[in-house]
């Protein structure tokens, strides 16, 4: 009769352990999926950041190249204009006529190539040089695509996902550890079985609490950001 009861008790214990193991397995699988998901999100944000960095650099380079192209034409225009002034002031009729022709026919075409440098006085510095930075800044301001590119923000997002991933790794390890102890309880007998079962369940509950807290904390942080 007692043997029968012991058998029944042992069977109930094994059933409890088996159910606990199944629950922990599912929880571990979910925690593993979430950890991997966070890693993927971080990688996506990093990839997006790098793409945006390349695009931003490209747009900046295009604007600088345009600035220097226009400045090169403006430089030719200004030097030629100085030449024209010297020709017109030379006192020589042929030179004066040459100057007038260049002013009438060549300078307008050169001014067209020089872009705003040839027409807008705001790009002329007080010392007679060209204000390249002002022209570049205006080109950047006109570049609507550049404002949407923020690689640093993407990297910050990736760092947050990585930080959250670290927390989840710890949680997933705790769950895996509890699974190991439950497995140990399955093969143990008597007192050691109970000790293993209690240890496994305690670690499991702690791991669950850890993961739940982590999810809540990071969800609140995301809400605060939004």
């Amino acid at each position: 009769m007692e043997d029968n009861q012991e058998l029944k008790g042992g069977s109930r214990g094994e059933l409890l352990i088996a159910i606990a193991m199944a629950v922990v397995l599912v929880a571990t699988a979910l925690a593993g999926w979430r950890t991997s998901d966070l890693g993927s999100r971080a990688s996506d944000a990093e990839r997006q950041g790098l793409i945006e960095a390349i695009k931003a650099e490209d747009l900046i380079n295009v604007d600088w190249r345009q600035t220097y192209e226009e400045a090169t034409h403006a430089q030719r225009l200004l030097v030629t204009a100085a030449e024209v002034e010297a020709l017109e002031a030379s006192g020589d009729l042929a030179s004066e006529a040459q100057g007038a022709s260049i002013r009438a026919y060549l300078l307008p075409s050169m001014a067209l190539l020089a872009g705003p440098f040839g027409t807008d006085p705001t790009y002329a510095a007080a010392d007679g040089s060209l204000d390249l930075a002002a022209r570049f800044n205006d080109l950047q301001a006109q570049n609507s695509g550049l404002a949407d590119l923020d690689p640093e923000a993407e990297f910050l997002l990736a760092d947050r996902y990585h930080a959250e991933q670290r927390w989840h790794v710890v949680g997933a390890v705790l769950l895996a550890t509890s699974l190991f102890w439950l497995g140990l309880a399955e093969i143990m007998r008597d007192r050691l079985r109970i000790v293993s079962l209690v240890a496994g369940l305690t670690i499991f509950l702690f791991g669950l609490a850890w993961l739940g807290t982590s999810e809540m904390v990071w969800a609140l942080l995301r809400l605060a950001d939004a």
């Binding site: 430089q75 200004l78 030097v79 030629t80 204009a81 100085a82 030449e83 002034e85 010297a86 020709l87 030379s90 020589d92 030179s95 010392d127 007679g128 040089s129 060209l130």
Partner: peptide
């Protein structure tokens, strides 16, 4: 004539100097 040409080219150089 040579001096007049020198003055014209010098005017070019002077203007370019202010741009350099």
């Amino acid at each position: 004539s040579a001096r007049a040409r020198a003055a014209v080219v010098a005017a070019r150089a002077d203007r370019a100097q202010a741009l350099s």
